[in-house]
Design a binder for these strands. Structure first.
Length: 109
DNA sequence: CACCTGACATAAT
DNA sequence: AATTATGCCAGGT
């Protein structure tokens, strides 16, 4: 049995910020990091990576800077990425070549 | 486009 | 408790 990974205050902030993202929009690790008063994006991605809140926290709505998808939690073979891209497309966020097609979809905190 | 550095948190040693 | 290594990064050279 694997030990539970209790979310920390920092992670909770990341989850809250991520949850703030309305449907059909996306955000970047950097923006979230700034929103929670942290200049680090890795810490943000780190929190999302654990994602104890699963689909409740739309980590797929969070992309890297430069409007790139960046990676994904456990991107085993890149197949999961496609799934998220599709979900985003369904929500109204179009991605082209793994990059955000409409910067207008960027959510501002 | 490739490489290295910077900033922050978690897990492991 | 401290240090080391790593991680859905970012940014500059």
């Amino acid at each position: 049995m694997k030990p539970e990974r209790p979310p920390t205050a920092f992670e909770l902030k990341v989850y809250e910020a991520t949850r703030r993202i309305p449907r059909g929009k996306v955000s970047t690790y950097r923006l979230i990091g700034k929103s929670i008063k942290c200049d680090s994006s890795q810490a943000v991605g780190q929190a999302l990576r654990r994602n104890p809140f699963a689909p409740q926290v739309p980590c797929h709505r969070v992309i890297a800077s430069s409007l790139t998808i960046g990676g994904f939690f456990g991107e085993r073979k890149g197949t999961e990425i496609k799934r998220k891209l599709k979900l985003l497309g369904v929500e109204g966020v179009r991605f082209v070549d793994g990059k955000l097609a409409d910067p207008d979809c960027l959510h501002r905190f």
